[in-house]
Simulated assay, not measured.
Amino acid sequence: MQKVVGRFAPTPSGPLHFGSLIAATASYLNAKSQGGEWRLRIDDIDGPRVAPGACESIVKTLEAYGFEWDGPEVYQSERDAIYQQALDALNESGRLYVCGCSRKQLQKRQPETPWLYDAYCRHDAVKPDVEAMQPEAAWRFQPDGGRLCFDDAVQGPQCLEVAAELGDFVVKRADGVIGYHLACAVDDIEMGMTEVVRGADLLTSSFAQQSIMLALGHEPPHYAHHPLVTNREGIKLSKKSRAPAIRRDEAAETLRAALTFLNHSPPKELNTLIPLWDWAVENWRLLKVKDVVSQKNGLQD
């Protein structure tokens, strides 16, 4: 039987908040309850988005909350060579092309859907050449046509016409930064992920990442996208919505709240981290998360 390997992959644009804790807790428990491994990856590929001290803060907060990951932390910023190998393979198979279109040009060509690339540069079919001068040009990936479907363990069956609904997406930006979907897909392959448990806001991203995995000749992992925590205005908790950082000196209380949100309310007598984690690993059932409706964060009140 294949060993379960899960992961938590935060972007260090700020400290962990309650929504981050939900993702970490759900992914951790789903792996550990099956006797599997849980890896920690810091998605710091986009340097300008990395907040000073955030990587260290994330690690220390997870430690304070009692998370124990298998193996060393993995940092995307140290893996450019691995991503380039994947880009070379995709380029060799004819899946990439150079694109010099700006956002302003896209807005002008299709004002109603500027986020969906219109394949303007695909017709020229210029393959990326790392030795040629191609200034201010991004590399785009061309997905297969047809529907891509998978069974999400929380959200149920999911299907998407990737080429039509996501378009040819960027895998290497014009400034040389590796695209999020490419880095994430390659990391999940290389780290041996068998499952990805994360928030429902990344459900669509799963289709882009699976498209890359399949193009590289790998079967995607299993997916489960849990409901999101929102603030009083119904906005998803995030750094952008100014969600407050979770406190290290309130770890047991906050972990209890996270478990309760995930429809796993611990017994009242469990008030410290070790008993809470022991109980949670023993009683974790992913199917119970399906009954969760996105709700407001009680810690905000």
Rank of each mutant, 00 (worst) to 15 (best):
Y83S: 00
Y223L: 03
D175K: 02
G94K: 09
W69L: 08
V292H: 01
I189F: 00
D278Y: 06
Q134A: 13
M1K: 14
K239P: 06
R147L: 08
C159M: 07
K60W: 12
F18H: 13
W277Y: 02
S102R: 13
L203V: 14
L255M: 11
H17S: 12
A215P: 05
G179Q: 08
A200F: 14
P266E: 07
E269D: 07
L166G: 09
E219V: 12
K104L: 15
Y97P: 04
Q76H: 06
K236Q: 10
C101G: 04
H181Q: 09
K127Q: 14
P275G: 04
Q85T: 05
Y180P: 02
G192A: 15
P244H: 01
D175G: 07
N297S: 13
K239M: 06
Y65D: 11
P266M: 09
E92C: 10
L228E: 01
V130Q: 07
I274N: 14
D151L: 00
P10D: 01
A164Q: 09
E37V: 15
R247Q: 12
A81F: 04
V5K: 01
I22P: 14
M1E: 15
R256G: 10
D249T: 04
R147H: 03
D301H: 00
G217H: 10
P72D: 14
Y75G: 05
S205E: 10
A257T: 10
Y117M: 03
R247I: 05
N263L: 13
P72F: 13
V177N: 09
L116H: 11
C121A: 12
P220F: 02
R232C: 00
A137D: 09
V126K: 03
G167M: 01
T113M: 03
V74L: 09
I246E: 04
S294M: 07
V197S: 13
S20H: 11
A200Q: 13
R248Y: 01
G156W: 03
G199S: 12
D175F: 00
D249R: 04
H225K: 02
E250P: 06
Y97K: 05
G66V: 10
F207M: 00
Q295M: 08
R79V: 08
P220Q: 06
D278H: 11
A257P: 15
R232Y: 13
D188Q: 06
Y75T: 04
G100C: 05
E195R: 12
P143S: 04
L214K: 06
V186S: 01
V4P: 02
